[in-house]
């Protein structure tokens, strides 16, 4: 079951000389969590727009190839955005641009009203999502009275209430402080798991998000340069460095282990942060006991 299949996709914005996306091929399974990263201007946001249909329906330009959703049931270029939006939700970097109503409750209900759901169902879903995200206390507040972290939670809530099958997050934590970033990532992971939602998340902070995703896709100058399972990332340190993407410590540690023949351990380090911590601790214990023996 593939929720997203992108085949030989090319896109060039009107008035631009260069293709922003060049021959993108990507398949995302149902329930998979995919990180999309890469240098600024590499085409990450453009790719998100192609999945939700803002391209080619709102942004003009030259479009080749195709984007298929839900096992090919929706062909994005031939489906109205409003129809796609019933199943695909997107949260942007700047929550303020997404919040338009006068209270949090009304904000969350707004999208549901557009889906023409009966009022009782709307009320039920609003309550459900307020509870799920732990923001019931904000229900009567104006979105502008909220902190950045709270606003981003409300933006997420209003999308989740529509029960999307695919959730796209475009740098959702850029404006958040560290605590709010962790809170948001945990909520996304929890909700995605409970409802088997497919997640596409764009982020620069690879280290923070690493253990929340299954797969890492790196774009550079409009092309996919790397597409690997999280646990296989140890193979690609030099590639990441070459593209100019941060190499987080867990990948560096795993890469050293793999080079020394500890492939299984390298994968485990990338599977689970606890293993990473243990591996490092063991290394220091080994060295200090070795040193003690030398002294004796």
């Amino acid at each position: 079951m593939y929720d997203i299949v992108i085949k030989e996709l090319w896109f060039k914005y009107e008035g631009e000389k260069e293709w922003t996306l060049k021959n993108i091929n990507l398949k995302v399974r149902k329930g998979e969590k995919v990180l999309i990263t890469g240098p600024s201007g590499c085409g990450k946001t453009t790719l998100c727009r192609c999945i939700i249909g803002l391209i080619p329906h709102f942004y003009r330009g030259e479009y080749k190839g195709e984007v298929l959703l839900f096992n090919g049931n929706i062909k994005v270029s031939q489906t109205e955005v409003s129809k796609i939006a019933q199943h695909v939700g997107m949260v942007f970097q700047d929550p303020e641009s997404q919040l338009i109503m006068t209270t949090v409750e009304r904000e969350i209900a707004f999208g549901l009203e557009n889906l023409a759901l009966p009022p009782s169902e709307i009320r039920r879903r609003v309550e459900e999502v307020l509870l799920e995200l732990g923001i019931s206390n904000l229900r009567s507040k104006h979105p502008y009275q909220l902190s950045g972290g709270e606003q981003q939670k409300v933006a997420l809530a209003s999308i989740l209430a529509m029960k999307p099958k695919i959730l796209i997050l475009d740098e959702p934590t850029a404006n958040l402080d560290p605590k709010s970033t962790q809170d948001l990532l945990q909520i996304v992971s929890k909700v995605a798991k409970q409802n088997n939602i497919t997640i596409v998340i764009v982020e620069h902070k690879i280290e923070d998000i690493f253990y929340h995703v299954d797969r890492i896709v790196v774009l550079n100058e409009g092309r996919i340069e790397m597409d690997v399972a999280r646990t296989e990332a140890y193979k690609h340190v030099s590639k990441l460095e070459e593209i100019g993407v941060e190499v987080p410590i867990q990948i560096k540690v795993a890469s050293i282990l793999a080079k020394k023949g500890y492939i299984k351990l390298a994968r485990k380090v990338l599977e689970d942060e606890k293993v990473l911590l243990e591996v490092v601790e063991n290394a220091f214990t080994k060295i200090s006991s070795r040193n003690r023996k030398l002294v004796v």
Binding site: I249, K252, L257, V279, V280, A283, I287
Partner: peptide
């Protein structure tokens, strides 16, 4: 970070 990576390199 350098010390951590050196330790991994030496211990394994």
């Amino acid at each position: 970070e350098q010390q951590i990576l050196e330790a991994i390199n030496n211990a394994y």
